[in-house]
Every structure is written in C-alpha cells, then in structure tokens.
Amino acid sequence: MLSLIKQVGLSPFILLTLYLIDPFNFGFAFGYLIFIYFFLSGKAILPLLDKDIVFITLFTAVYAIYYSFNPISGSQFIFIYLLFPPTFYLLGKLISNKINNFDNIYKILLLIATIYSFIALISVLLNIYNVGFYQVNRDVSMIWSHDPMNATGMAAYLFANMCLPGIILFSFRNNKHSENLILILIYILSITAVLRLGSRTQLGITLITLFVSIFYFLAKQSIVKRAISLIILTVFTILSISYISVNSKSDIFSAYADRMDSKKYGAGTAGGRTERWSKSIDNLIEKPLGWEVQEFGYSHNLWLDAARVGTVICFILLVWFSIRSTINVYKVTKYKILPLRLKNLILIYFIAFYLQFFVEPILDGSIQLFVFYCLFQGIVNESLSIGKSHELV
C-alpha cells in the first residue's frame, strides 16, 4: 500500500484523502490546494488534456455562471462548481498515468472508494452504538458536526461499498484471505449502516451490481464452467428463498416501514420522484432558461437538476459528457489486455454512479459525489489510453 501511495505521489494522495474525509467540513480547502497543485505544475499537465476535459470545463463554467445569479447554498459553491470537477478529472488521469499498472489501478480505486465512505460509515455505526438500531429519525450527524445530515446524503457516501459483493465475486481467488475478509467486513458494516439509514437506492445498487457482475462473470466462462456456475447459483438461490425469511416489520427494516406500502413514496413512484421527473421534462421545453427550486423542489436527477439551475445548455453538455463516458467504459470492458477484475470494477462502479445520479439531487446535495465521479472518469480514460499503448506494443 505504501508503494502504491508513493507511485501516486504523497502530496496529491494526502490532499485527495483530506478532501474525501472532509475534516470539520473544511474539505473544500484541500480541493483548492489540488487545483493550485495542478496550476503550479504548468506544462506537466498538458499531456493529460483531452476532449472530455473540454466538456467538463464548459459544463462547470456555464453552471457556475448561472448559479452565481442566485447562490442559494452560498457564494463558495460558485468556485467549487467551476474548479473542482475538471481539477479532479485531471487528478484521476494523473493517478492512473503515474501508476501505469492495471492491478494497482484496481487497488487504488478500491482504496479511494473506501476512504470516501469512511467518515460516513463511522458516523452511522457510532450512532447505532450510542442510540440503538431502531430510531424514528433516519437522519444522522457526521462526526465532525452535531447537525443532522439527511439520510439520503449520508447513504450516498456508501454507494461504492454496495458494489463489494460483485467485486469480491471476481477477485476472491486473486486476493489474499486477509484482503477478502477486510472487504467482506466493510460490506457487512456498510449494509448495516444502509439499513439504519433506510436507503432503498443503496439496496438497489447492491442487488443490481451483483447481478451485473454475475452475468458478466458467466459471459467470460467456458460453456462447461458456465453450466456448473448456473447450477450452483440456482441451488443457492432456492436455498436462500427457502430458509431466509425477511420480516418487513422487524427492527432491521424499521427505517423502511413507513415507505414500503406508500402510494406516494413507494417503489411504483420511485419514492415520489416520477412526478418531479415529469414536471422537469416539461420545463425543459417550457422553461429552457431554468426554473426555481420552490416550484416543486429538486428534480432528483443529475441532468434535470443541472437544467433547472444551468439552463438547457448545461443539460446538453452534461448529457454529451455522459454519453462519452458510457462509450469509454464500454471500450474498457472490451480491451482484452485489461484484467477481468478491473473491467468488472469499472463497470459496476459506473453503474452504481449512474443509479445514484438518476434518483438524487447530486449537484445540490452531493457535489462531492459528482467530483468523485470526475476523478473516476479520469482514471478510466487514462486506463483506456494505457490499454491502447500496451496493446500496440
């Protein structure tokens, strides 16, 4: 691990870690220091520039300009929106470029995701320890502050940990026993925290990414191994259904009790989001220059919320960047030279990001998650470049 950190560079790694753990809610200061680090690098960053950095910069510039007309969350966010996404995209490319090793890229992605979730996970576990699992209020305070943070925002920090079952499926044989035990422990603690927060989004992420990993795993096997795996999977599923009963009225699912059968906030309306999506899509045509959040609240969708604040221009730029990102991830999964476990990790992290983006107000409530995505996309795109050069050699 120390060798991996040395490859990345001690200064950028420490600054990234401090930004992710956000000590006493001053993590943004370390984001500025990362920007200064790149600014002082001068010509050294020129090889990292590509078409995607252009789209990210255009998007963040337009969004920051329109946000500045009504900075409801504070003027500080003008500079955060403007600088952080492109800066962390470049940081992702720098990390991948310095490592230049696919196994280590896999490890650094896991490490960054764990650091990102660490403070939120500790905060929820301490809350359970001090107050108990069954609580009426879903919101939990970060350890840096006594002010409660909404459960949705807190759960967003755990999204990557929800992918661990699918990750372990691919890496179990290659990992040491101690590494597998650590990953399993992190997942058990994380799913406990998610159940305490009552996040349906995170449960959906863990199930969907696991199924994607299973199908991806089966697709890469021979016909005989695929048949054996399907038999084992079928038997395991039947046993699970037969012997594991889920009581929706138990304390474990108490945070979900008031929303499971709700007509307004149930699964059929995506937690009450479908009406907001419909109104937001109408506003894209009727109000292309944006609309006020007071009209019906957040759109609970990254692209639609971007249109609300940054006009249809931001919507188009972000959609185009998303399409390019999807194509790049698809290309990564097709490169034979990349290890299967890295391709699987990138695929399910990408799916987990987008499952989160589709149902939450990211730019308004979890800007750090979007910044993390830009870092991730930088790592992916540079890995794609490394894969091309290795394949050429």
Rank of each mutant, 00 (worst) to 15 (best):
residue 262 S to P: 10
residue 136 V to G: 06
residue 139 D to N: 15
residue 43 K to N: 07
residue 139 D to M: 02
residue 375 L to S: 08
residue 209 T to L: 01
residue 321 F to H: 12
residue 327 I to Y: 01
residue 96 S to A: 15
residue 179 E to G: 09
residue 39 F to R: 03
residue 174 N to L: 06
residue 292 E to L: 08
residue 26 F to H: 09
residue 43 K to R: 12
residue 332 V to I: 15
residue 388 K to G: 01
residue 340 L to T: 02
residue 94 L to H: 11
residue 132 G to H: 07
residue 159 F to D: 06
residue 60 T to S: 12
residue 191 I to G: 14
residue 378 G to H: 07
residue 11 S to M: 09
residue 342 L to F: 05
residue 267 A to D: 06
residue 30 F to K: 05
residue 75 S to F: 13
residue 173 R to A: 11
residue 375 L to T: 06
residue 243 Y to H: 15
residue 375 L to F: 13
residue 238 I to P: 07
residue 98 K to F: 04
residue 132 G to T: 05
residue 301 N to F: 14
residue 325 S to G: 07
residue 170 F to Q: 13
residue 266 G to F: 02
residue 164 L to Q: 09
residue 180 N to W: 12
residue 74 G to H: 03
residue 42 G to D: 02
residue 6 K to M: 06
residue 117 S to C: 01
residue 2 L to M: 13
residue 149 M to E: 14
residue 304 L to T: 00
residue 80 I to P: 06
residue 130 N to I: 04
residue 233 L to T: 14
residue 208 I to M: 11
residue 246 V to D: 09
residue 82 L to H: 01
residue 254 S to Y: 15
residue 191 I to L: 03
residue 176 K to Q: 04
residue 282 D to T: 06
residue 234 T to K: 11
residue 17 T to C: 15
residue 316 I to Y: 07
residue 152 T to Q: 04
residue 293 V to T: 07
residue 191 I to K: 12
residue 41 S to N: 02
residue 292 E to M: 05
residue 237 T to W: 13
residue 76 Q to P: 00
residue 87 T to P: 02
residue 166 G to D: 03
residue 360 E to N: 09
residue 1 M to A: 03
residue 345 L to S: 07
residue 196 R to I: 00
residue 128 I to H: 15
residue 223 I to S: 15
residue 232 I to G: 03
residue 87 T to A: 06
residue 351 I to Q: 07
residue 231 I to L: 13
residue 135 Q to L: 05
residue 54 V to Q: 04
residue 191 I to N: 12
residue 92 G to F: 04
residue 13 F to K: 08
residue 131 V to D: 13
residue 253 F to I: 02
residue 86 P to S: 02
residue 123 S to I: 00
residue 337 I to N: 15
residue 176 K to G: 13
residue 364 D to R: 11
residue 293 V to R: 09
residue 343 K to G: 00
residue 99 I to Y: 09
residue 50 D to Y: 02
residue 209 T to D: 04
residue 328 N to Q: 14
residue 176 K to D: 03
residue 62 V to C: 10
residue 169 L to E: 01
